[in-house]
Design a protein around this nucleic acid. Structure first.
Lengths: 187, 187
DNA sequence: CGTGCACTTGATTGAAGTCAAGCGCTGTGG
DNA sequence: CCACAGCGCTTGACTTCAATCAAGTGCACG
């Protein structure tokens, strides 16, 4: 819970009152490996924070699993379209290591954003950060080779490469397992 | 200016006071074709709204122009990373038809978001909408064929295909002009 | 001890990129 | 008023990166 508060403050500080009201409504999960936080075709109610452990967001595309996102220690994550649009999602959120996860319900988050201006600002900054990241990732998928993307991941998130199975990493990078294997074997 | 107000309200309503303060600070440009709104390597100060006309956001990648975004009548547009991170951008924003464009300065927008909770909420909803769009576009670039992307554009934004040169459309779709030409010639 | 999962390796294919040439307007200057 | 320069687009030949399909290896654990 302390690490959640730190993560919040680093994005946008909250008044004592807002912080207390805000952190009070987060729910905690202490889960085993392979625990499912979000089932397929359901509305994603929670905005998550993983304090310790690892999770992946994935879905099925033509019968194959596509890993859309990987979250490790001290990261926020969510099914963006489902959480904000309140529509059922083909996404599945699965914990892939024993983990400690926090989540705030959509309705609580919106209620508090309405009540406290600084919570609204926090949410805006979170979404903005996510949007910037999304832009960078789109550029990467469009213009960088599989090799470049893998090398960038090695630089920016070496822990992912160490802790997450290659199958997940491959589709997170937008390439097949075979291509990733060949990239790794060169040199 | 009326269309700007309508566009704002359709995203998130503002109180009379906020709306007045907010719309008061938008600057207007009435421009000829090819007018440059944002020069290369400068910080993008404005969040734009195109009332009538067309604009494109592009940059140079290995000496070639890449069109990143196309905005037509009644759309908001901006250089996301530059506007929010306040960093110089390789992006160029150019009007490609005689147009009427409005823009709000970053500092005015942030000042008003700080002062009025409902302006902050408006900004959050704008960014959220943009993020959702960005996710959908990323998925499209990653998994759809050039053909599918073109057909989708035809369906969702036929005006773009009618009003914008194919060179720009091609790189907006993430393909070359030649590939787009071949797609169009089949059937 | 063997079944299956995680990963590797090889052969082939395919979608789109690159390079190069050419066509047909349009508009401007001699 | 014609000519040709240049832009917007098309077409063709060839290349390339990564996907697909298909085996095969090695380790983990029940």
């Amino acid at each position: 819970m302390e690490s959640l508060q730190k993560a919040i403050i680093s994005i946008s500080p909250l008044s004592k009152e807002s912080m207390e009201a805000f952190t009070a409504v987060w729910k905690q999960w202490i889960t085993q490996k392979d625990f499912i936080l979000l089932k397929e075709n359901t509305v994603s109610d929670y905005f998550y924070f993983i304090e310790k452990g690892a999770a992946r967001i994935y879905y099925y595309k033509n019968g194959k699993e596509i890993t859309e996102w990987l979250a490790l220690d001290n990261q926020f994550f969510l099914s963006i379209t489902s959480f904000f649009q309140r529509t059922p999602s083909h996404l599945i959120i699965q914990v892939i290591e024993p983990s400690v996860v926090y989540g705030i319900h959509h309705d609580d988050f919106m209620r508090l954003a309405d009540k406290y201006h600084d919570v609204e600002r926090l949410l805006r900054k979170m979404v903005t950060g996510s949007l910037i990241f999304s832009q960078i990732r789109m550029d990467s998928i469009q213009f960088e080779s599989a090799q470049q993307r893998y090398e960038k991941l090695l630089q920016t998130s070496p822990q992912i490469v160490q802790r997450v199975p290659l199958t997940y990493i491959a589709s997170f990078l937008g390439i097949t397992l075979e291509t990733l294997s060949r990239i790794r074997s060169q040199k």
